[in-house]
Simulated assay, not measured.
Amino acid sequence: MKVMAVVAAGVVLAAVAVGYTVHAADRPAPETAPGAIAPGLHVRTADGTVSGTSLSCHRFYAAGDAAVCLAAKPGFPPKTTATVLGRDLTTRHEVEFGGTPNRARVSPSGRMVSWTVFVSGDSYTASGFSTRTGILDTRTGYLVKNMESIQLYLDGRRHHAPDVNFWGVTFAADDNRFYATVATGGRTYLVEGDMAAWTARTLRANAECPSLSPDGTRIAFKKRVLPGADDPWRLHVLDLATLRETPLAETRSVDDQAAWLDDRTLAYALPGPDVWKVPADGSGAPELLAADASSPSMAP
């Protein structure tokens, strides 16, 4: 298979991980699901397929002209394949790497794709868990194999530590700015990143799995409100202009990267699994959106 070269594109990475391959879309196409990704809500159903398609994914997300499907591969150690698809469900890229699928996002244009996998442990509360987060520029083929090489600034100072972990990327409309979670020193932080400069700076502590609103003004995130508890997180929304946060009406613990249905409403999965929705301004009450489902994504 043809291996795509990593394009420098003016971005210098300090280190890269091994074990990843990117396959170009001009190779013989694998079997693809029939139909296309229609506008509207898509979820992972009880049988593991994405609603409206026959794609089999553990995590799915669609935006712009692209979608990403994370699928676990059988065997040990665990491996994952990230398949980047067009809206017509033709395969554009494939990336294979170690780990268990956890998070997936596509930028509003469809150009930038990100994924997170667990490489040890099976939950955020697992002892010694570790993540690997990658980013692919589908236009150039530029692949960040592991975000841990980024220049991280913690409270304005350059930060180096062996325990740094990133997860849960969400992209802005310019395909350059992004937000993510970083964990280091026993704390989690919301970071704002710059792809071209390959830097990230912390914005606030105690924020995980960010999701940028369609209008680019707010971030939904899960906040740890009960340290040490089995169900510790509550959904909040952060106003980026004022850094004022609003707790949402969902009081159950949400261990998910919420998805915006529009500028007013968020969707998320709860154990069951079921997909629920709640207003993003703290009003109202949670409503069941899709039973026996997870991994919500609103395709435009």
Rank of each mutant, 00 (worst) to 15 (best):
V50Y: 04
S51N: 02
L55T: 01
S56N: 01
S56D: 12
C57K: 06
C57V: 09
A62I: 06
A63V: 01
V68G: 07
V68D: 02
L70R: 10
A71Y: 07
P74N: 10
G75Q: 01
V84D: 00
V84N: 06
L85N: 07
L85P: 05
D88F: 06
T90S: 15
T91N: 09
V95K: 00
V95L: 11
F97R: 03
F97D: 09
T100N: 11
P101S: 02
P101V: 00
N102D: 14
R105C: 08
V106T: 11
P108G: 03
P108M: 12
P108K: 09
G110K: 04
G110A: 11
V113H: 01
W115V: 02
W115T: 04
F118Q: 08
S120R: 15
D122V: 07
Y124D: 06
Y124V: 05
G128R: 04
F129Q: 03
T131Y: 12
R132E: 12
T133W: 02
T133D: 06
I135K: 05
L136G: 06
D137H: 10
T138W: 08
T138R: 10
T138K: 04
R139G: 03
R139W: 12
G141C: 02
V144I: 15
K145L: 00
E148I: 12
S149T: 15
I150E: 10
I150Q: 02
Q151F: 03
Y153D: 13
L154G: 05
L154C: 13
D155W: 13
R157L: 05
R157M: 04
R158N: 07
H159S: 11
H160C: 03
H160A: 14
P162V: 08
P162H: 08
N165V: 10
F166P: 10
F166H: 14
W167F: 15
G168A: 13
T170Q: 08
F171V: 11
A172L: 01
D174H: 09
F178A: 09
F178S: 07
T181R: 02
V182G: 01
V182L: 14
V182R: 09
V182S: 10
Y189V: 07
V191F: 13
E192W: 10
